[in-house]
Design a binder for these strands. Sequence first.
DNA 1: CTTGACCTTGGATCTTACTTCAAGGTTTAT
DNA 2: ATAAACCTTGAAGTAAGATCCAAGGTCAAG
Lengths: 135, 135
Amino acid sequence: MYKVGELAALFNISADTLRFYEKNGILKASDRSSSGYRLYTEADKDRLDFILNAKSAGFTLVEISELLVIEVNKDQRTCRDTKVLIDHKLSHVQEKIQELQRIEKALKSLSDSCVGDSTSALYCTILESLESKKI
Amino acid sequence: MYKVGELAALFNISADTLRFYEKNGILKASDRSSSGYRLYTEADKDRLDFILNAKSAGFTLVEISELLVIEVNKDQRTCRDTKVLIDHKLSHVQEKIQELQRIEKALKSLSDSCVGDSTSALYCTILESLESKKI
DNA sequence: CTTGACCTTGGATCTTACTTCAAGGTTTAT
DNA sequence: ATAAACCTTGAAGTAAGATCCAAGGTCAAG
């Protein structure tokens, strides 16, 4: 059994984060000590591991909740249930990447057009581009 | 002179957004009518154009404020001042892209490992991966 | 028996860019 | 003259994921 600070230390997160996860129904300590301290079991630790792995894979906490529902009721769910979530997330991430790449291109073209020296900004090509509707 | 809704319509944004920009010091209507309506000039319209172009290039409103300070005091600023902002933003965007690409890779590898059919999730490789620390 | 490190709770705060609301005044068209 | 469509203000709400705070209880060491 781990106290909140102990479990947090194991995963390099804060005790506040664990309390936040509990408040949001994503990870509840299985027990409490007589004095009210949260006590986490090995199963709780495994669940936290799952949560942090999913987070690192880019899932939001709401999405992780959905994954946990499947994980916990595995025997009543199919591979398809899981894959649908992953693929949905994947295309979302790919959209974000494309939008950022569009922005990257716009910034690069702004930057490349400008020498960036001590010339007065009066004729700065970057500012000129932003003034007109060329992006 | 444009009323708030008129200027908003020109740029396909909401009147609320313009009021929000005013509250945040980014775009103030140059005049008011006798009854208190906001009245925007052509110069205001140009400024809004600049703001929306910068937004489309990925700048936050705070960053746009910084750009506007340079834009408005062009004669006292250098190209370098401008380029520093752009390049800083560019590397920030590139970092975000890399993080999203890491996530994309993780999601792809999860998705590819799973056929996604009606097999029970008991042996779903996606869930197995999330359970252990393999990501 | 006291110090310090830990734990409890609810609630406030942060960031970003708006959006929504309530209660009311103005303008325009019919 | 009245209804629709506009405008005003300040305040509160939204998402997301925490982080921080205050006021207080608990536990182990010296």
